[in-house]
């Protein structure tokens, strides 16, 4: 056998190294205070994806979940410092060491002000787009359109309430690409959730441009489920940054100074 005795880390890890500099903006420590968005309606969509696609997208610091999957989170925010808006975040499910995380691959918001808000609270790589979340008698519909083209259009139907501990959906913390002290890095966005209601249903994907997942990603074929939740979202100040090329167990995690106290 060729393995190293006492090894802890797996050999299965992402290998993406070719992202353009444009995708890794300098880290701006603008997020210095906690902001709460109340009664946010979330449409959470999970789908499996080919492992090879995940490995091509994830940087070496991150391990794909088994099976590989990606998530789309659509949000309808009724009230915020920049008014009502809707936004969507797409990401690949992954692990930083043993921490469940999501590498953000695309984000969309309905106005420049809301895009700026999300940039200030986690440096989401946001594009202004037409994001829609609508409830109907049969479920919840969400879509993203850019330049008049619908790039994501998904429905969760046959919703069933989820009770007890299961209602506290384990949304993974997003990791957003930034450049930090000259290194390609991943800023973790810490969001606390208070759950008001949760329901789970079956997915129908009417359209999905795989480019939102990654430039060479193939069309996912297997849905996992869709979830509708109403939550309060508490965006905390920036806390941690991962070196994109170094696993956290090997020293790739940097805990930031307490920005709120600074």
């Amino acid at each position: 056998m060729s393995h190293e005795p006492y090894q802890i880390l797996t050999h299965l890890r992402g290998g993406a190294t070719s992202a353009s500099d444009a995708g890794w903006p300098d880290y701006q420590s603008a997020n210095r205070s906690t902001v709460t968005l109340r009664n946010v309606e979330i449409h959470y969509v999970l789908m499996e994806m080919p492992m090879q696609d995940a490995l091509a997208i994830l940087p070496p610091a991150l391990h794909p979940s088994v099976p590989a999957h990606f998530t789309m989170m659509f949000h309808r925010v009724p009230e915020s410092p920049v008014g009502a808006f809707q936004f969507a975040v797409v990401g690949v499910g992954c692990r930083a060491g043993i921490r469940p995380r999501m590498l953000t691959t695309a984000a969309f918001a309905t106005s420049q002000a809301s895009a700026d808000f999300l940039s200030d609270h986690g440096q989401f790589p946001v594009r202004v787009a037409d994001v829609m979340i609508r409830n109907s008698y049969y479920g919840i519909d969400s879509s993203v359109s850019t330049d008049g083209r619908k790039i994501v259009d998904v429905t969760t139907f046959a919703l069933e309430p989820v009770l007890g501990g299961g209602a506290a959906v384990k949304f993974c913390a997003p990791l957003n690409p930034v450049t930090y002290v000259g290194n390609r890095s991943l800023l973790q966005v810490d969001i606390g959730f208070e759950y008001h209601e949760t329901a789970r249903g079956r997915l129908e994907v009417r359209s999905l441009d795989p480019a939102v997942i990654g430039p060479a990603a193939s069309m996912p074929e297997f849905g996992i489920c869709g979830v509708r939740s109403v939550v309060d979202m508490e965006f905390h100040s920036d806390r941690s940054i991962y070196d994109a090329n170094v696993q956290s167990e090997e020293g790739g995690l940097t805990i930031l100074p307490d920005l709120e106290a600074a």
């Binding site: 299965l12 499910g93 989820v162 007890g164 501990g165 209602a167 384990k170 993974c172």
Partner: peptide, 20 residues
């Protein structure tokens, strides 16, 4: 533990009343 963490738990992937 590191291997257990790479799997996709039901409680993460499929919110359900019987996997709280």
């Amino acid at each position: 533990s590191s291997m257990a963490a790479q799997t996709l738990e039901i409680s993460q992937a499929f919110p359900s009343s019987n996997y709280g």
